[in-house]
Design a binder for these strands. Sequence first.
DNA 1: ACTTGGCACTCGGGAACACAGAGTGCCAGA
DNA 2: TCTGGCACTCTGTGTTCCCGAGTGCCAAGT
Lengths: 339, 339
Amino acid sequence: MLDDRKLAVLRAIVEDYVSTNEPVGSKALAERHNLNVSPATIRNDMAVLEEQGYIAQPHTSAGRVPTDKGYRLFVDRLSQVKPLSSAERRAIETFLVGAVDLDDVVTRTVRLLAQLTRQVAVVQYPTLTRSTVRHVELVPLSERRVMLVLITNTGRVEQRVIELHEVADDARIAHLRAVLNACLDGCGLSSVPELVADLPERVPAEDRPMAATILSVLLETLVERHDEKIVFAGAANLAGADFSSGLRDVLEALEEQVVLMRLLGETSPDTPAALTVRIGSENPYSGLRGTSIVATGYGSGDRQLARLGVLGPTRMDYPVTMGAVRAVARYVSQILAAS
Amino acid sequence: MLDDRKLAVLRAIVEDYVSTNEPVGSKALAERHNLNVSPATIRNDMAVLEEQGYIAQPHTSAGRVPTDKGYRLFVDRLSQVKPLSSAERRAIETFLVGAVDLDDVVTRTVRLLAQLTRQVAVVQYPTLTRSTVRHVELVPLSERRVMLVLITNTGRVEQRVIELHEVADDARIAHLRAVLNACLDGCGLSSVPELVADLPERVPAEDRPMAATILSVLLETLVERHDEKIVFAGAANLAGADFSSGLRDVLEALEEQVVLMRLLGETSPDTPAALTVRIGSENPYSGLRGTSIVATGYGSGDRQLARLGVLGPTRMDYPVTMGAVRAVARYVSQILAAS
DNA sequence: ACTTGGCACTCGGGAACACAGAGTGCCAGA
DNA sequence: TCTGGCACTCTGTGTTCCCGAGTGCCAAGT
């Protein structure tokens, strides 16, 4: 159906269009790429490609532009992820080394990725649910108030101030803390609810109301933060590009956690480190026709903790972008594994 | 020099230009505002205003547009901060009530402010240096690693993982924690360095290297985070407006913590709750000609903890914007004081 | 001394128009 | 199956023209 030369033509169209941002015509193609055929032949191929929906012309007698379907074929079969230059690798290292805490890692990562790809970078904070409890701390603030601090193995820290209905002295708090830690230390967050289910029964009767209050806040914390935190950077890189749906829609989407969440997508369980590419209309949000997302999972070792990626115009350099996303994801995974 | 009528003309020009975004001419002015004079008279006044630099014409035979100096005079002498409608007040309350922690308060605030003003909102996290220590926690992670958690009275939590040069058992850590808390609880962060200066001498000799390591990280934390965290929201609101310096510059500035920091400015010590307005070229960053900043301090009680504000085109509705910024700052201050 | 109506002048922006250039589709011949 | 030739169709750009909004100035009025 599509012989090798037609595929080569499609590849050439995508490459030229990405680099020039102008519809590409048969003559230019014949010159710039050594396809060893005449423009007329290319025109015939183009007619076929157009008929099949891989390319389109903005108007009669203009060059051709790849369609979403065309980019899809290009990404799937006609391109190879481009590895980073050694200079870029060094940049990544120097940029990420020296991050002091999780916040810092995420912030640096998102900026790095934005700078590297010259597009908008999006990074999801490591998921709470898949991490494990490293420590639970109860800090008495005043007679009737304690602060609950939950530290996970990914370095994430959640805190809540809890109002108690009774006065709680330090000793009782300390005891409860000990019980909590004994019970939860090292356990996965998802198993916390069952683990603490019978906990009130294991404390002195007079402490049970307090324990119940604290537990309910703890469980609430786990649930509430299920909608994960996501940050982005590099919005300035959108300024040059023009989107079919207006820049405004894109910026609005970026500020909607929920939308971003769905954009990054889910890590496929079988190939966790695979790159996900969503092109134009493939993505689930109407304001983002005209943009593509390249994303992947990251996390220490075999555990995928969260996802990161970039968002840019459909007309983007996929091989380079995919290379950068993959490389950054690997480095961040290393950093997280080491800490 | 400028009689009342000339000031009225300037006010009318600013108001009309803000609402229409088109240069305003003498005839339109005479009609829309009841100044009770003829267009010719207004033209004379305009000539004077232009000579003095309060207004300008984009080209000969176009209407007049306020200059930065004109907006300045308008803000200082010709306008009054406009209080919010009761619907808006209610919106603020429902939006901010229910925030679970400091992160949440800040996030909600910045979004609220962006939505309310339809501009870019900027909020600085409460300053570390002016808050006080509520609790210091040392959590053993493994034999040679502890996590230092610093909780302030503003609800801010800083954490660092510390690598020790020796094995530290729980008892020794617990002791050090007790000493630290006894020493620092309730003290201002700025006084921490002097308070812990002689601390190594107050622990058993064999613990001193460990104490020194931990202290150095603690002090480092205080210094490093001196460059405060700032967040913004509502970048989508910039999409419609056009800036002299291009949208790109503005977005870039927004992603530079340092620039944002300087934009928000310093709270004046004598009138901490005063609104600061920086108009166009008055602000310190060249990429932001064409934008104005309305900012103010916020914080619990008499203590100003940090600043918040909005950024928009110089052509903005100052009275309304100032009203919104002031109102939000007050509500946030209340929320923080209560927690 | 200020205000007003009149008037000539200026300039930007939109409409109408022509034109060059790039690109296409198709066809006949190699 | 490829190629060169050719007629055709667009867009984008440059030019011209004109309308209208707005100005500055001046002389007359209050």
